[in-house]
């Protein structure tokens, strides 16, 4: 008996593992795979006001490749990514290092107040900044009037993207600071002690111990920021009524998909935009992760 038991167990397929994983797999398939598959399915069709629904193969993808509005919106978020993300992460890092240095008076207050903007809903934050930016009745307008100067309109076509970058930076510096700060807190204090015994100054400790130790957190924050940049939507949507001629309906890829879908009734093409943007984001995030890990 003692010998045959494992043999039986080996022959009979065990479903125990599936019983554990099953519920997850089911929900995963339902909420993650199904929408993606459905979007891909949608992207292969075209529904017209005249002519109805028809299968068009990869026509939508071909159209996307030649769609100057899509590439313009993509270029815009790419610039945003290249400029805004480094500024934001650098600021977050400096603040995190400052708080972690232990030399800051009122550390807890400083930490909370920098994190506070993240707790403000993006819609409210954007509205608030919208009032600040207003060159007729907003703060900018008031400054112009009081000091008799003429500041450039932050919501003009040339400056709108920078103004949005400013809002996003304000919103997310605290969030990234917290990621960096918590990574810094787990570095064993003994490392600092031995470093100072070896005669390392603060700057040397930062470059030789702190930065290498939080590389993982830096990579994660960068990936989140990349995804966030490509998904830029709330801020431009809220500002659009204030600057309808500067913030177009294809200002960012997400906004473009929204417009196609809800104003244009072009669900199929919107699905195509969503899939292609998803793919591009995945590829870029993957490359960053690969690089981040390789240099470790």
């Amino acid at each position: 008996m003692a010998v045959s038991q494992p043999a039986v167990a080996r022959r009979r397929r065990s479903w125990r593992g599936w019983q554990f994983v099953g519920p997850f797999m089911l929900i995963f398939a339902l909420v993650f795979l199904a929408p993606i598959v459905y979007s891909i399915y949608l992207s292969l069709y075209r529904n017209q006001l005249i002519g109805g629904n028809s299968f068009v193969g990869f026509d939508n993808y071909q159209r996307l490749l030649q769609d100057s509005q899509f590439w313009e919106s993509f270029g815009r978020v790419a610039i945003f990514l290249v400029v805004q993300v480094p500024i934001m992460l650098f600021l977050a890092l400096v603040v995190a290092l400052a708080i972690d240095s232990g030399r800051l008076y009122g550390k807890a207050f400083f930490r909370v107040s920098i994190f506070l903007p993240y707790a403000v809903p993006a819609v409210v934050a954007t509205l608030m900044w919208g009032f600040i930016y207003g060159d007729q009745f907003g703060l900018v307008g008031n400054i112009n009037e009081t000091f008799n100067v003429s500041l450039p309109n932050p919501l003009s076509p040339h400056l709108a993207l920078a103004s949005i970058g400013n809002i996003v930076t304000w919103e997310f510096v605290g969030y990234n600071m917290l990621i960096f700060y918590s990574a810094l807190r787990v570095i064993p204090g003994s490392l600092y002690e031995s470093a100072s015994l070896d005669g390392a100054g603060q700057f040397r400790i930062i470059t030789a111990i702190k930065l290498p130790a939080i590389r993982g957190a830096l990579v994660i924050a960068t990936i989140f920021s990349i995804i966030g940049s490509f998904q830029l939507f709330t801020e431009p949507v809220i500002l659009q009524p204030l600057a309808p001629n500067a913030i177009t309906t294809y200002f960012t890829p997400n906004l473009y998909a929204y417009q196609l879908s809800f104003s244009g009734q072009q669900y199929n093409y919107a699905a195509t935009v969503a899939i292609v943007m998803g793919l591009i984001t995945m590829v870029i995030a993957y490359v960053v992760q690969l690089r981040g890990n390789r240099e470790r």
Partner: peptide, 21 residues
């Protein structure tokens, strides 16, 4: 799962067009 559904519903808004218009 519910949170993910909510998230995906908002992401997948494009998907709710349906083919049977």
């Amino acid at each position: 799962g519910a949170a993910a559904t909510a998230a995906l519903l908002s992401l997948g808004l494009a998907a709710c067009g349906g083919g049977d218009d």
